[in-house]
Amino acid sequence: MASITLNNLWNFIQSMSLSANNELWLAEKLHESALKKQQANKAYNIAEEKTIIVSEPLFGPASIEEAISRVQDAEKEYTLNGRGTTLNEFTAELKDEQLW
């Protein structure tokens, strides 16, 4: 079958003299096929989500452990000093680290 557009396919199907039973049969077959493809796609996406590739980060921590460590350090600093980092201080720190 040569390349065919969906509109051409639909026009072809409509031009056929199908009984109501035949149209229902065709609809069921197409629906079953679509569900199988959808389920296969979901299974593929779930399997893909489980595969995590960690490369050099462009911004932020390289791992969950590093992120947790940074948050814990910030909490300790806040507890000791009684103040958090302002937006300007945070921006200056990022510029010093040359992350952007």
Rank of each mutant, 00 (worst) to 15 (best):
S63G: 04
L87A: 07
T51S: 01
I68Q: 10
E89M: 11
L94M: 14
W100D: 00
N22S: 14
L9M: 15
H31W: 13
N81G: 02
N11C: 07
F90Y: 13
R83E: 13
G60R: 03
N41C: 06
A67D: 09
T86H: 08
L18Q: 07
L24I: 02
L58H: 13
K76R: 09
K95F: 11
Q39G: 04
W100C: 00
R83P: 01
E23W: 08
Q98F: 02
L6I: 14
P61S: 05
D96A: 13
Y44M: 09
T5K: 04
L35D: 03
Q98I: 01
Q38P: 00
P57I: 07
R83S: 12
N8A: 14
S33Y: 09
A67C: 10
S17W: 06
I13N: 00
R70L: 15
L9I: 14
Y44G: 00
E66K: 09
A74L: 12
Q38E: 10
L26P: 05
V54L: 15
N22R: 14
S19Y: 07
E97S: 08
Q98K: 12
T91G: 01
T91N: 10
G82R: 02
S3Q: 12
G60N: 03
S15G: 06
D73K: 13
W10P: 00
S17M: 07
I68S: 03
Q72D: 11
I64A: 04
L94A: 09
E65V: 07
L30E: 01
W10T: 11
N21I: 01
G60W: 04
F12S: 02
E93S: 15
L58T: 14
M1N: 01
F90I: 05
T86N: 06
N8C: 04
K95D: 10
N45K: 15
A43L: 02
R83C: 06
A67N: 11
I53Y: 09
E89C: 06
Q38D: 05
E28R: 10
N45Q: 15
A92V: 04
I52V: 15
T86K: 08
T85P: 01
Y44R: 14
Y78V: 08
E56P: 00
K36F: 05
K95I: 14
K95E: 14
K42S: 05
K42M: 10
I64E: 10
A40R: 11
A34Q: 10
Q14Y: 05
P57Q: 08
A40F: 02
